[in-house]
Design a protein around this nucleic acid. Structure first.
Length: 134
DNA sequence: GCCAACGTTGGC
DNA sequence: GCCAACGTTGGC
């Protein structure tokens, strides 16, 4: 079991849009490092859904329901998508500010590599963010 | 809206 | 293959 975090600008695609749609293919990743992370996702993995730009915060949990396959929105074989379903919303959104204030979360890519849009999390980090949402 | 960080492109 | 220019992301 692996844990991940993906970013989305709520103006483009928000958690609410995701819940309404019930299932989505996560397309549009055009960065090799993010792509490699998508490829490493396995069915059943949990993925934090993070809103960037406006009140940046982790807002919900998604679940991987289909592993990486060719991105149907491009011919370019470099790019893949995964299918995701909403799992559950966080009781309280965990803001970027709160994450920055948490000593044990200083090493996550969200902070160290602010532009990466798909990143792995350790189980401890995932659990810690979950605890912050209580 | 500004700007820093950083990935990509293209000239040489 | 280097590196400057440029575009984009995302925090503030």
């Amino acid at each position: 079991m692996n844990y991940w975090l993906i970013k989305s600008e709520p103006n483009t695609y928000s958690w609410d849009d995701f819940v309404k749609e019930k299932k989505t293919l996560w397309n549009g990743v055009r960065n090799f490092q993010a792509r490699n992370n998508l490829r490493a996702m396995r069915e059943g993995d949990f993925v934090f859904f993070y809103h960037s730009v406006h009140n940046p915060s982790v807002v919900g949990i998604a679940k991987v329901v289909k592993e990486a396959y060719q991105d149907p929105t491009t011919e370019d074989p470099n790019w893949v998508v995964v299918d995701l379903e909403p799992y559950q919303p966080l009781k309280n959104a965990v803001s970027l500010q709160k994450i920055k204030e948490t000593p044990d979360l200083q090493n996550i890519a969200l902070i160290r590599q602010s532009r990466l849009s798909v990143m792995p999390l350790k189980q401890e980090e995932f659990d810690l963010i979950l605890a912050l949402a209580e």
